[in-house]
Design a protein around this nucleic acid. Structure first.
Ligand SMILES: [Mn+2]
Ligand SMILES: [Mn+2]
Ligand SMILES: [Zn+2]
Ligand SMILES: [Zn+2]
Lengths: 139, 139
DNA sequence: ACCAGAGCTTAGACTCTGTCTAAGTCAATC
DNA sequence: GATTGACTTAGACAGAGTCTAAGCTCTGGT
């Protein structure tokens, strides 16, 4: 993802300090940050960056397919820089941490035509839920 | 689900007009309503019922396992009275409608131990996304 | 049947995410 | 270096849900 900035420039993006910093934050952390977490980390590098710009930039990156949105609950959306290798997620119901997982099997193939109701099905998300080792023992 | 009220009484619930009405709304409609939609329908039967009570009652029903929460986007959560037959969901990206689907295969079995990171995995949600026949042609 | 009181309901304030707006700033081009 | 349209900003706004404090009511015990 280090060539993200190049790809963006190629798409006609103005290269601003703000966009660079948001890209750096996502590049550095292969985790699933909320917009406010991205903002907090961006502020360290560029104190005057605004919340609105972080939201705008994240939205643009999602539209470009460079970052995925992950919604596992009604709390804040999380932004996933691992957009280029398909995967699913395992979420701890206790602490909310998210891990990337790669199940075997193809859930799209598991949906027979008779269960598609004429929909053009284009995507499937699988969310596993459970308790991480820490939360399981602290329960 | 018509014996829902009985089960709830058995669990020590006080039987109030408000709870009865919420249960009736969910019983009557095998669809996926938002809390505000439940409230609107409840108000028809019991005009003074409050939004807070609808939220409280839905939350209790979810805790008891009588109703499922379905979060397919960042809009309002939806409440699913079909809690006793496992199923997954197919969501139209255009109009937001939700259908119950029953894929073959068991996604839980498809998650190898090496991909569980020591989690106690208890549940899996599969969300198919696509366009319904109407939205696919109107696109 | 009546009472006490725990449990339930209510209105509205509040929180949390995220979006929008209008004014100011700046990167890219000339 | 000037121009200009894209970008950024602060803060207002909105939607969904939670919380609170006060009042009401269901239920069990008498
Ligand atoms: Mn991920
Ligand atoms: Mn359902
Ligand atoms: Zn945990
Ligand atoms: Zn549709």
């Amino acid at each position: 993802m280090s060539d993200l900035l190049e790809r963006l420039r190629g798409r006609g993006w103005r290269m601003t300090a703000q966009r660079r910093v948001v890209a750096e934050v996502l590049d550095g952390e292969h985790v699933h940050l909320t917009a406010d977490e991205v903002h907090m980390r961006a502020v360290v590098k560029l104190p005057e960056i605004s919340r609105a710009t972080v939201y705008n930039t994240l939205g643009e990156l999602v539209t470009l397919g460079e970052v995925l949105e992950v919604t596992t609950d009604r709390r804040a959306k999380r932004y996933d820089p691992n957009a280029h290798r398909p995967h699913h997620h395992l979420v701890c119901a206790g602490c909310g941490q998210i891990r990337d997982v790669h199940p075997s099997g193809d859930p799209l193939a598991d949906l027979p035509d008779s269960e598609r109701f004429g929909f053009k099905v284009s995507d499937v998300e699988v969310t596993y839920r459970g308790l991480c080792p820490t939360c399981a023992t602290t329960a």
